[in-house]
Simulated scan of single mutants.
Amino acid sequence: MYVTTSNVLTEPLTLMSIGLGLTAAILITIAVLVPPSGIKNSKNIEGRGLIYYTCALFMWASMADMSIQTAHFGFFMGLESNTDYFTNGEPYLMTPIGISTQYWNAIVNYVLYLFIIYKIDNNQDPRNFVLYWCGSICTSQFVLMSGILTGSYSDQLEYAVWMNVTFVVFPVWVLWKYLVKPRTDLPVKIAEKHQSGFLDLILSVGLIAASCLAFVRVLGAMGSKFPVMKYYATHYEPHLLDETDFGKTWALYSAMYGIPFQLAAVYGLRCPGKEWMLNLSVYYAASMLQGSFVFTSYSWYPSSEEQYRIPDESRSTVLCINIALVFLANLLMFRCLSDPGYFAPKPAVQDKKRK
């Protein structure tokens, strides 16, 4: 933080160099203090590998996010507020969406890192926490990076923005690794016949409704003149039209990923044996929680533009809609993880029985 008080060290290229240098130094230090030989990778144990050290490194980034934002607001160790880092490095972090994203990373993602590291150090499968973290950070990075490159900040990009590549590449790699990695929590014995219950019916109806809302939201964010889409965007969630494009990219992300998964999940709830439901439901739950919180919070900030705030007469409705979306997504995750046998593929179960 003290680095940002020097005019020499706030040059964009210098800031990026310092950031990359500190990242490498911290990663090496962590590897020396907590060597990978402590817990080795095996068939059912993750071990201290790239995922472990990625979490340790990103924890430092979370603390940096917290210190930068709190110092900006004048609450960090008595330092006066300054905007040097934002001006010369990542100016979009001064927006309401940028502030909420950094605080989310500093608090929620930090806790997830702790759980993942704890699970690995205690020879437990960290899969669900890893997937939840992937849903959280991939959502924030897709929205931020897409908005940066297309919105009003696209002509203010400095070298420091490229430090975000690390926070895009590693989470995507980790996500892919766990999507293709066989699960170890599937039951050996499952019922031969499964029946979809009343909860599955409620979830299916909710997922279809969520898909319809995502369709209306994304077309409204894209500037559709169709009355329903235009009315929703202007009277319920005007932040979708913010010139930074963060609202638009959130709507686009929730439609590109949300609609296909939500409709596929309806099928997965009706037809047993779809193992992919276990992984993707966790990712989906985190995505909806992170996105809904960050973008609903836009109207909480005094710095947000009046024309893009949720109108007072629609505030309760918008909050209820977003809370319902988050509740639905996390209820789906609970449904899947509480009964993994319903989603276990029969061939895999039969192979385990033979062994």
Rank of each mutant, 00 (worst) to 15 (best):
Y2T: 15
V3H: 13
T4L: 08
T5Q: 15
S6V: 10
V8Y: 15
V8M: 13
T10Y: 05
E11F: 12
P12I: 06
T14H: 01
M16A: 15
M16V: 10
S17G: 12
I18L: 09
L22I: 15
A24H: 10
L27D: 04
I28Q: 07
T29P: 07
L33T: 11
P36F: 04
S37A: 12
I39P: 03
G47P: 11
R48E: 02
L50Q: 09
I51R: 09
Y52F: 05
C55W: 01
C55G: 01
L57T: 09
S62G: 14
D65Q: 04
M66P: 03
I68A: 05
A71P: 04
A71Q: 05
H72G: 11
F75S: 05
F76Y: 12
M77T: 00
M77N: 01
P91E: 06
M94D: 10
M94K: 11
T95F: 07
T95L: 09
P96N: 03
I97G: 01
I99A: 02
S100P: 07
Y103T: 06
Y103K: 02
W104D: 03
W104L: 08
A106M: 00
I107F: 12
I107N: 10
L112D: 01
Y118L: 06
Y118T: 10
K119I: 03
D121Y: 05
D121R: 07
D121T: 06
N122Q: 05
D125V: 06
R127G: 00
L131W: 04
C134S: 04
G135E: 03
G135T: 03
S136L: 00
F142Y: 15
T150K: 06
Q156C: 12
L157G: 12
E158H: 15
Y159H: 10
V168F: 14
P171L: 02
V172K: 02
L175K: 06
L175M: 12
W176L: 08
K181W: 09
D185P: 08
K189Q: 10
L199C: 08
L201R: 15
S204M: 14
S204V: 12
L207K: 07
A210Y: 08
A214E: 05
F215G: 10
A221C: 01
G223A: 00
S224E: 03
P227F: 12
M229V: 07
K230H: 13
T234M: 08
P238W: 02
L241D: 07
G247F: 00
T249W: 13
G258Y: 01
I259S: 00
I259C: 03
F261Y: 15
W276Y: 13
Y283E: 12
Y284K: 05
M288E: 08
M288R: 08
L289G: 08
L289F: 14
F293G: 00
T296H: 08
S304T: 12
R309M: 07
E313M: 15
T317Y: 13
V318D: 01
L325K: 11
L328D: 02
N330S: 13
R335A: 00
D339M: 04
A344M: 01
A344D: 00
A348R: 15
V349F: 06
V349I: 13
K352S: 13
K352E: 15
